[in-house]
Design a protein around this nucleic acid. Structure first.
Length: 350
DNA sequence: AAGCCGGGGCG
DNA sequence: CGCCCAGGCTT
């Protein structure tokens, strides 16, 4: 039995039953692969099912509003994936006549689709022998071949890709790719891998050398940046309806096209001191406000940032000129917000 | 080549 | 706490 035959046999006997494995429709495979990028299967699967329900065809997705797509994506993170997903659905409608491209080269041109996703779609949907290179595959193969160089180096990734391409089953490239990933995800895991019962223990260089714990190696991580956010939570009552002031984030910062509140950012405030009210004058075009409740600090961790946020409430009895979007509080659930804001809202308002 | 972009789960 | 996850885009 060749390596790929052993692996595929193992896969057919041990694979998890996932919703996204019940189809070969390129639209659904694309959707699932974008959702699963840098995301654990268990975390992404509920989102996949909600997207399939909401947008059963690429045409449905293309016709949606971006805000609606972001709302459905809310909580999953890396929101550029959702923006690109939506934009690419429209591109498929207008540029490809609604038909998903069927060659690796054309799939790779789609925005939001890189080497990994193009290979996954091409192999699973169209039986094209392109090997996927994701975290699971790189871990499994770097251990199996005892590759100790950092997998962050493109050179190392090329070496591993060559191994995968050499071993890919040309009859079942989709199963081979999924088997590689499934094996990495369930047996050759980052911590406490199942080496003792591993099918490939005899061939595994890292196991032989007792270096499984050090492979794969990665570059040192970049430093975490601390940010201190002072959020103004303005509410206004007008004819018995309560409104809240939202801010749509634009530009190249985190959470693009998501909503939060008007904000003052400080970088030197190591302790997130309470700001005096007049510091907010620049946001308000009006007289210094009187705060209602001022929250304790909220800590929110991103990959390269640690956010320290404080929320300052202000209430007005009538509408004034405000530099933000005034939304009825009861409609907040229509607006995509980052997890930090969602945490605050559910603690204070809901 | 390196930085940036979220959020969650695990040891 | 640190690490990693069915990665890709920007600089």
């Amino acid at each position: 039995m060749t390596f790929s035959q052993q692996l595929i046999t193992w896969y057919r006997n041990n694979k998890r039953d996932l919703p996204c494995r019940r189809t070969k429709d390129p639209y659904f495979i694309w959707l699932s692969e974008i959702i699963m990028q840098q995301t654990r299967i268990e975390q992404g699967t509920p989102y996949y099912e909600r997207f399939v329900d909401a947008y059963p065809t690429v045409k449905h997705l293309a016709s949606a509003d971006e805000q609606e797509v972001l709302k459905l994506w809310q909580g999953l993170g890396y929101y550029s994936r959702a923006r690109n997903l939506h934009g690419t659905a429209q591109e498929i409608m207008t540029g490809y006549g609604g038909i998903f491209p069927d060659t690796h080269a054309d799939i790779l041109r789609l925005k939001g689709v890189g080497d990994y996703t193009a290979a996954a779609i091409a192999s699973i949907c169209f039986d094209q022998p392109h090997a996927v290179m994701d975290g699971n595959v790189m871990r499994f193969l770097s251990r199996l071949y005892g590759i100790a160089e950092s997998i962050d180096r493109p050179e190392t990734k090329k070496t591993i890709r060559a191994i995968a391409e050499k071993n890919i089953d040309h009859r079942n490239p989709g199963d081979f790719n999924q088997a590689m990933m499934e094996f990495g995800a369930t047996v050759c895991t980052p911590a406490n891998p199942g080496c003792l019962n591993c099918l490939f223990q005899r061939q595994c260089i890292a196991f032989k050398n007792n270096t499984v714990g050090r492979i794969p190696a990665r570059n040192s991580k970049t430093a975490v940046r601390h940010r201190f956010l002072h959020y103004l939570v303005i509410t206004v009552t007008e004819r018995g309806t309560e409104f809240i002031c939202l801010n749509k984030r634009t530009g190249s910062d985190i959470w693009k096209n998501m909503y939060d509140f008007p904000c003052l950012e400080r970088t030197l405030d190591k302790t997130l001191l309470r700001l005096p009210a007049q510091e907010f004058d620049e946001l308000l075009n009006s007289a210094t406000p009187e705060f209602g409740e001022v929250s304790n600090p909220f800590i929110h961790i991103l990959t390269h940032q640690k956010l320290h946020a404080r929320f300052y409430r202000i209430h007005y009895d009538k509408k004034i000129d405000l530099p933000c979007l005034l939304v009825p509080v009861k409609d907040i659930h229509n607006y995509p917000v980052p997890k930090l804001i969602d945490r605050y809202l559910s603690k204070i308002f809901f």
